[in-house]
């Protein structure tokens, strides 16, 4: 593997030949775009604030309004049952931001500028999804705090708990790539948002995030048991509250890795070919 970089003295950008330089530049491009997106998040603190308001409303709604009527069984109290579901639901809904952000970049002509630059084709999407991952870290921390305030008490140790949180974040990152695809296919950011909901509602509500699957009709139960949100929620529950872990964690990791293998190349292809 040879790497040759020529830094221009007068005009033009340096050129990379060789795989090494290309990989290094793809990483540096991704970091540059990530930084740009993170700066944008800090410039609009209201957006970050309100992106935690909705999940907090969900916590209060399910904890105090619906929660009394839902009995998860197995001796688990409802707030402990609820919170892993809330975490996954929150990051899943947060993935809409990926599609909105990219649709906005397209709309404002920024993608045109990026496409005329000698940067890695994957960097615009990788930078967006990485920034959204950072945002999710913040949001999950806030939601964990909220959970403790309303009585959430995880029963396993610190390590399994962190493993569960890591799984949620990795799953969120995979979902982001899927929603990047939606953002690149939408004509504008408003449409990107409404295109996202029909996918998110069945995934988050026809799942084990809020209610036990046993209470669902059998025709729905099959989907609700094996779809990725339920699998990840169940895996997190076992990591955070105890119970048989390996079966569900393996499935959750398989889903997440599978999505990460399929979605990014597809999204980058869409980025390349979108006119």
């Amino acid at each position: 593997m040879t790497t040759t970089i020529s830094i221009p003295t007068v005009t033009g950008a340096p050129l990379a030949t060789g795989v090494g330089a290309r990989v290094r530049w793809a990483i540096s491009d991704t970091l540059t775009v990530t930084k740009r997106n993170l700066i944008a998040i800090t410039r609009i603190p209201e957006a970050l604030f309100f992106s935690t308001v909705q999940p907090i409303m969900f916590v209060l709604l399910f904890r105090y309004v619906f929660g009394g009527a839902i009995h998860p069984g197995h001796g688990i109290n409802y707030v402990n049952y609820l919170m892993p579901g809330i975490f996954v639901q929150t990051v899943a809904f947060g993935a809409i931001q990926t599609s909105i952000g990219l649709a906005e970049d397209l709309q404002k002509g920024l993608i045109e500028r990026f496409r005329a630059l000698p940067m890695a084709r994957s960097a615009v999407l990788a930078g967006r999804t990485t920034a959204d991952l950072c945002r999710n870290v913040m949001v999950v921390i806030v939601m964990t705090g909220v959970g403790f305030l309303v009585g959430y008490r995880p029963t396993t140790g610190v390590l399994p708990y962190l493993a569960g949180t890591g799984l949620i974040l990795l799953f969120a990152y995979a979902l982001s790539w899927g929603f990047a695809l939606i953002g690149l296919s939408a004509p504008n950011s408003e449409t990107a948002q409404v295109m996202s909901f029909p996918l998110l509602f069945p995934l988050t509500f026809a799942s084990s995030a809020f209610v036990p699957l046993a209470d669902m009709p059998s025709w729905l139960r099959g989907f609700a048991t094996y779809q990725p949100v339920s699998v990840v929620v169940t895996a997190c529950r076992s990591l955070m509250l105890g119970g048989p872990t390996s079966h569900w964690v393996v499935q959750a990791v398989a889903w997440t890795v599978g999505l990460l293998i399929v979605l990014p190349p597809f999204a980058v292809w869409r980025y390349r070919t979108r006119t």
Binding site: D29, R36, A40, L110
Partner: peptide
């Protein structure tokens, strides 16, 4: 271009820096 493809959440300097870094 006519669409002034710059990032309005960034400062002028940050915009120029970003483009410079993306030019490696």
């Amino acid at each position: 271009g006519q669409y002034a493809a710059v990032d309005e959440n960034l400062t002028g300097r940050e915009n120029l820096t970003m483009v410079g870094r993306l030019n490696h």
